[in-house]
Simulated assay, not measured.
Amino acid sequence: MFDHIGIGVTNLSESTAFYLKALKPLGGEIAMEGPSSVGIGRNNKPSLWLSETKVQPSHMHLAFTAENRSQVDAFHVAAMAAGGKDNGPPGLRPHYHENYYAAFVIGPDGHNIEVVCHQPNIGNSESN
C-alpha cells in the first residue's frame, strides 16, 4: 500500500550512512536528495525518506521485505557493522507464521528496523 514513508532523524549524515549500509543487501541506495532530506530506495525510486529534525523523533518500527533469507542475514551483518544495536538476530518467528524469517536492529534514532522474508527456505543450503 505504501509508496514511500518519511521519518525524522536527528543527524541526517549519520542516519544516511547507517541506512545505506544496512539496506545495501536489499538494493538500497540514494534515489533522491533534498536540502535537508535523503530518499533511499531501488531503481532511482525513493521508498524511505530521511528528514533532519531538531526534535527527537518518536521511535518507529520499519519493516522491509527481503527476497530470501540470505538477504535477512546480510542485512543484520551490515546493520550491526553500521553501528546498529541488535534487537533480534536472524531467525524464524513461528508465532507470526511458519516461514516468518526476520532480523531486528535499532538504528541511530531508536527506530526498530526489521527485514523479513515470508518465503519458505526451499532448495537452499542454509540451515535456517
Rank of each mutant, 00 (worst) to 15 (best):
P57K: 09
A78W: 01
G110C: 11
A82W: 07
P90W: 00
I106D: 08
P57A: 13
V9Q: 01
N128V: 11
H76T: 02
Q119H: 10
D73S: 04
D73I: 10
N11G: 06
M1L: 11
G27Y: 04
H61S: 09
A63S: 12
E67D: 11
H59C: 11
L20I: 01
A17N: 10
N87Q: 08
H118Y: 06
S127N: 13
S58D: 15
L26V: 05
G123M: 10
E29T: 10
P35Q: 14
G88F: 05
H76R: 05
P89R: 15
A103I: 04
S127I: 13
L20A: 09
E29S: 13
K45R: 14
L62I: 13
S47E: 15
C117A: 07
K85Q: 14
L23C: 07
I40R: 07
A81S: 14
A82T: 02
Y96A: 09
E114F: 06
N43D: 15
S125P: 07
P94S: 09
P46A: 14
D73F: 00
H111V: 03
R42E: 10
F18P: 01
H111R: 08
P35G: 13
L50S: 06
R93Y: 04
G84E: 06
C117S: 11
I40W: 07
V72R: 00
L50P: 02
N99D: 11
P108N: 07
A103W: 05
G88H: 02
A81W: 02
G27P: 01
N11E: 09
S15T: 08
H118D: 12
G107T: 04
L48P: 04
S125L: 14
Q56S: 15
T53Q: 10
N43P: 01
P90R: 03
Y100Q: 09
S37E: 12
A78N: 10
F2S: 13
N128Q: 13
R42P: 06
A66M: 03
L48W: 01
M32S: 12
S37M: 13
S13D: 14
L26K: 00
P89C: 10
W49T: 04
H59S: 15
K54Q: 15
G34Y: 06
E52K: 05
E52D: 01
G88C: 03
D3L: 12
L50M: 05
D3H: 13
F2H: 13
M60W: 10
E52A: 10
N87F: 06
R93K: 11
M1G: 14
C117E: 00
S37W: 11
P120M: 01
A66N: 02
E52Q: 13
S15F: 02
S13F: 05
S125T: 14
